[in-house]
């Protein structure tokens, strides 16, 4: 039954479910979702956490309606370029940022509501051969792009009216930057992972490229999801879509590596693999605080506690539809899980 398909399986050693099904939203158009996210939306001092779903040609905003019901309040229609992803931007309200393109990102657009003329609208933030983009604190957006042989790493400050208030460039490394993560604990530090498996560190304020540190060849194409500084070390949470299976740690979906930024030496701290008896490689995922979630090739979703170093929840694939997307909510312990049939389920993780 559908209820069974939406219920996490109990893992050995866990006495109760820590992923609770809350509600489900389904687009009547039957479009296949390419991404899902949450966004703060409101007016006159009141705001609520809404869900945003994207399919290739449109992006929809869903508001919560009691009890456990979602209402689609607006759909932005996009042009001929397909939507690839929704880019969450912290510290913003009434603003949805999306990336459009074919094999790689060609445009970044803002979708918003304009109270000036009481209408929903969209505006272009950036176009080009964009390799990576991330929403930063204080309504900023960082991206890496290539023009000819030159790489540009640029920060754009967004206004709630959809304007780009300010643009700042950071010193680019030689290799293409494929992912970014802000460093918790050091306000102006930012890290990136590159196409040749290095972690680079910037000073956001000055734009300086501070350090380049190699991750190693065992885990190619590593992507950084989170970084934090503690006790003089830089801890980076990485995913490894192309990691080789080993007897020691199986197929690790995420790894935590500690770098000494002064010497560029590193050591593995923790890896997150599936519990025995479950198979599947990492397809895509997201990290929030100490929680990591991933969609696996088996069509299941797994959740790990990075502090405990173990898998804490598993959503099995349904018999008729697989899980395809997993995102953490912008607030609280919400988990958004998307299925191949276009439906999105909201869970609470505790």
């Amino acid at each position: 039954t559908e209820a069974e398909q939406l219920t996490p399986v109990l893992l050995d050693g866990l006495r109760e479910e820590n992923l609770q099904f809350i509600s489900k939203l389904k687009d009547s158009s039957g479009s296949c979702a390419v991404d899902v996210s949450s966004v703060w939306w409101g007016a006159a001092g009141y705001r609520e956490l809404c869900v945003v779903t994207a399919c290739e040609s449109s992006v929809s905003l869903w508001k919560p309606q009691a009890p456990d019901h979602w209402e689609k309040v607006y759909t932005w229609q996009l042009g001929e370029i397909p939507v690839i992803q929704i880019i969450p931007v912290p510290d913003t309200c009434n603003l949805v940022c999306i990336a459009l393109g074919n094999l790689e990102i060609g445009e970044i657009r803002l979708l918003l509501y304009s109270s000036e003329n009481d209408s929903f609208k969209q505006s272009l933030v950036k176009s080009g051969n964009i390799k990576a983009v991330l929403g930063l604190r204080d309504g900023k957006l960082i991206s890496s792009s290539r023009a000819m042989q030159e790489q540009q790493v640029e920060i754009v400050s967004l206004s709630e009216t959809g304007r780009c208030k300010d643009r700042q460039t950071l010193m680019p490394p030689e290799e293409t930057v494929l992912a970014f993560a802000e460093v918790e604990g050091v306000r102006d530090a930012l890290v990136g992972t590159t196409a040749v498996n290095s972690v680079v560190v910037w000073n956001l304020k000055t734009g300086q490229l501070l350090k380049k540190m190699h991750i190693g060849y065992s885990y190619p194409a590593s992507i950084c999801h989170r970084a934090y500084s503690d006790s003089g070390l830089l801890f980076v949470v990485l995913s490894h879509p192309h990691a080789k299976e080993s007897e020691l740690c199986g197929n690790p979906a995420f790894r935590v590596i500690a770098f000494n930024p002064k010497t560029a030496r590193s050591t593995g701290v923790m890896f997150s693999s599936l519990p025995p008896g479950h198979t599947g490689r990492y397809l895509e995922g997201e990290v929030k605080d100490a929680w990591a979630a991933a969609v696996l090739t088996s069509g299941a979703i797994a959740v790990w506690d990075l502090l405990l170093g173990c898998c804490t929840a598993l959503l099995p694939p349904g018999s008729d539809s697989r899980w395809t997307l997993v995102r953490w909510s912008a607030a609280g312990a919400g988990l958004l899980a998307g299925r191949a049939d276009g439906s999105v389920c909201v869970y609470r993780y505790a």
Partner: peptide, 23 residues
Amino acid sequence: CSDSDLGPISLDWFEELSSEAPP
């Protein structure tokens, strides 16, 4: 992880690297 594996650790690594890196 010990100091010997990772080399000498500095709590002020960000400020130190910022002062050493080219502007």
